[in-house]
Simulated scan of single mutants.
Amino acid sequence: MKEIFARRSIRKYKKQKISEKMIQKILQSGMAAPSAGNEQPWHFIVITSNELKQEIAKVHPYSDMLPDAPAAILVCGDTKKTNHGEFWIQDCSAATENMLLMITSLGLGGVWVGVYPRKKRVQGIKELLDLPDNIIPFSIIPFGYPDDTKKPHDRYLKERVHYNQW
């Protein structure tokens, strides 16, 4: 799957709108992620409001690319769907990565912007979007047509691979 190696963090976007069909495909790929006990403890908020993107950028110190992205998806964990404990974190991570791979597959670019576990970011975004207590903002994925090109990068490090013992 070439998207695994082609996916790069893209932070500059063209001012071209993203179709609803593309957004739905991205969301479907997130929901196709594996989850502990098949709990699927995620919710996704599609963000297209320029005003909201600017407000989030004021709360999150590393989201300066967000206002320029045509769209973003906020991935949230639902603590009411967590019979397997803290595995919602891995589940939301898998959903985030699936969506980044689909974004790449569609010829778009995106970047993973972490929210959880930074308390100030979590609280600020919860307040901005009026999230219920059981919903925890996990990551934001700004995306759009790339206005930046990055070549695939081989990150394989042989010295980090161990067989059967350290």
Results as ranks from 00 to 15, higher is better:
H153S: 05
A6L: 13
G30V: 05
T149C: 01
Q40C: 02
T48S: 14
K15V: 01
C76P: 01
G77K: 12
P41R: 07
D64S: 14
F44M: 11
W88I: 06
W88M: 12
E159G: 01
D78H: 10
V111W: 02
Q90L: 14
H153T: 02
I140K: 01
P70N: 11
F87L: 14
V75P: 00
I56L: 09
P137H: 09
R160N: 15
V75Y: 02
I140M: 10
E20P: 00
R11N: 02
W112K: 08
L129T: 03
A36P: 05
F44G: 09
K120D: 15
M99P: 02
D68V: 00
I47R: 00
K80Q: 11
W88R: 10
A33V: 14
L128D: 06
D91F: 06
T104M: 03
N134P: 00
R155T: 01
K80S: 13
H162S: 15
R121K: 15
K81E: 09
S19R: 06
V111T: 12
E86W: 00
M99S: 08
Y13T: 07
G114F: 02
K14R: 12
N38K: 12
D91E: 10
T104W: 05
Q165Y: 14
V122S: 04
G30I: 07
S139Q: 02
K158M: 12
M65P: 03
S93V: 09
M65Q: 09
C92M: 12
E20R: 09
K2L: 01
Q28C: 06
T79K: 14
A33K: 13
K158C: 05
Q123E: 15
V115T: 13
L100A: 08
G37I: 04
V75D: 05
I47S: 03
I18E: 05
S19M: 08
N50V: 02
P137T: 08
P132K: 14
F44W: 12
L129N: 04
P132H: 06
I141V: 13
I23A: 10
P137A: 08
P137D: 06
A71I: 02
G37M: 10
G114Y: 00
P117M: 09
I47C: 00
E3I: 07
K21Y: 02
D78F: 06
E127R: 14
